Simulated scan of single mutants.
Amino acid sequence: MTATQARSTYRTIWISDTHLGNRNAQAQHLLEFLQQHHCETLFLVGDIIDLWKMSERGHWPKSHQAVVNHILTMADNGVRVVYVPGNHDPFFRKLVGHQLGHVEVHLEYVHEMVDGRRLLVVHGDCFDDEIAHSRFLFWLGDHAYETIVHLNRWLNQWRARLGKPYWSLSGFLKVRSKKAQHFVQQFEQRAIAEARDRGLDGIVCGHIHQAKLEEIEGVLYINDGDWLESCSSVVETQDGTLQLVHWATAHQQRVTLPPKVAKKPRPAFSS
């Protein structure tokens, strides 16, 4: 980190779908992001270590270990790290209620923002019918997606040599696929309904690798994206502003939602 790359400090950071152990993981971008963004609480919203891919073919370069080491160092140095496992790292769901060193493991979590709004934090595979009802269809879709992401990695290496900015092939295809858009809309509606049914103000999830920060039907829908292609995260500033950060596209390109008028103060976190 250079002198011109001052660290930004946030109340909360959410990241998910880093898929460490997958050769397409953008570990170097992720490490740079974490080095330049300090926080009080870091949420790891599932699919952090891709145990599925590692069971097929081991891939654990130094850059992936460097990310894990950095997160553990954050936890050791007083950052509250909350791990909410996903469907690619399901083993860690067996450790719910325990700690991995200084890292807490929860199946889901309710985070209270500085302005009093409460957000359900969950990976999101519970809103995915393909996982729930058809393992074969999910496997087929997962392998097709892996092929696209692999092509995306090589394409962007070529673009970088030409001095061109990062560009997501998968994101481009999703926008043009009616089936993909229908799936995303259904996922979002299920997530929003879950938050509303629980009397919460919003939901933070990952899983579908489609970053979004928006108030929909009076409910905050927050998807922090992924670190296979979009390299995105969501942050909460000290005044309660939410920002969706696209890191690789153009460093610190952001979508912002301002805080609500502060409610009566409550404890910082509840579970």
Score class of each variant (00 low, 15 high):
His133Trp: 08
Gln36Ser: 15
His106Tyr: 11
Tyr109Trp: 15
Gly163Pro: 06
Gly163Ser: 05
Val84Asn: 01
Gly97Asp: 01
Ala262Thr: 06
Ala66Thr: 04
Glu194Thr: 15
Cys205Arg: 08
Thr18Phe: 00
Val149Gly: 00
Ser270Tyr: 12
Leu95Asp: 11
Trp158Lys: 13
Thr41Glu: 02
Ala193Gly: 13
Gly240Leu: 04
His59Asp: 12
Trp227Tyr: 06
Asp226Gly: 08
Leu119Gln: 05
Val110His: 10
His37Pro: 09
Val114Pro: 00
Leu173Pro: 06
Thr241Pro: 06
Thr73Phe: 03
His70Gln: 07
Trp158Ser: 08
Lys53Glu: 10
Met113Cys: 09
Glu146Asp: 15
Leu120Phe: 14
Ser232Leu: 07
Lys53Tyr: 06
Val79Ile: 09
Gln35Gly: 15
Ala268Asn: 06
Thr73Trp: 07
Val235Pro: 05
Gly202Met: 02
Met1Ala: 08
Arg57Phe: 03
Thr41Pro: 02
Leu140Phe: 06
Val122Phe: 02
Leu220Asn: 03
Cys205Asn: 12
His98Leu: 14
Gly124Cys: 09
Ile208His: 01
Met54Thr: 08
Gln189Cys: 10
Leu200Glu: 09
Gln189Arg: 15
Ala132Lys: 14
Phe269Thr: 15
Thr2Asn: 15
Gln253Ile: 03
Trp227Cys: 05
His88Arg: 10
Thr41Phe: 01
Lys62Met: 09
His19Glu: 10
Pro258Gly: 11
Val67Gly: 01
Val245Ala: 04
Leu173Trp: 01
Lys94Glu: 06
Val81Leu: 00
Ala144Ser: 04
Leu42Tyr: 01
Val175Asn: 08
Gln253Ser: 12
Asn223Gly: 04
Ala3Gln: 11
Ala75Met: 10
Gly116Asp: 08
Gln5Tyr: 12
Lys264Met: 05
Arg80Met: 09
Gly86Phe: 01
Ser134Val: 01
His64Leu: 01
Ile222Glu: 00
Pro258Gln: 05
Leu155Tyr: 02
Phe33Thr: 11
Asn69Pro: 05
Val67Thr: 05
Arg93Glu: 14
Gly124Thr: 13
Asn77Ser: 15
Val67Tyr: 00
Arg159Ala: 09
Leu20Val: 03
Phe136Asn: 03
His150Tyr: 13
Glu108Leu: 14
Val84Glu: 01
Thr256Ile: 12
Ser8Trp: 03
Asn156Leu: 10
Asp17Val: 08
Gln252Lys: 15
Ala248Val: 06
Cys205Phe: 11
Trp60Tyr: 03
Thr241Ser: 15
Glu194Leu: 10
Val84Asp: 02
Ser232Tyr: 09
Ala66Cys: 07
Phe92Tyr: 13
Arg266Trp: 07
Gln26Ile: 07
Ile13Thr: 01
Leu173Ala: 11
Thr73Ile: 05
Met1Asp: 11
Trp139Ile: 13
Gln26His: 10
Lys263Cys: 04
Phe187Asn: 05
Ile48Glu: 00
Val219His: 00
Arg57His: 09
Val234Phe: 03
Leu155Gly: 04
Leu51Gln: 14
His38Thr: 11
Trp167Thr: 06
Asp226Trp: 02
Glu56Asp: 15
Pro165Val: 13
Gly78Lys: 12
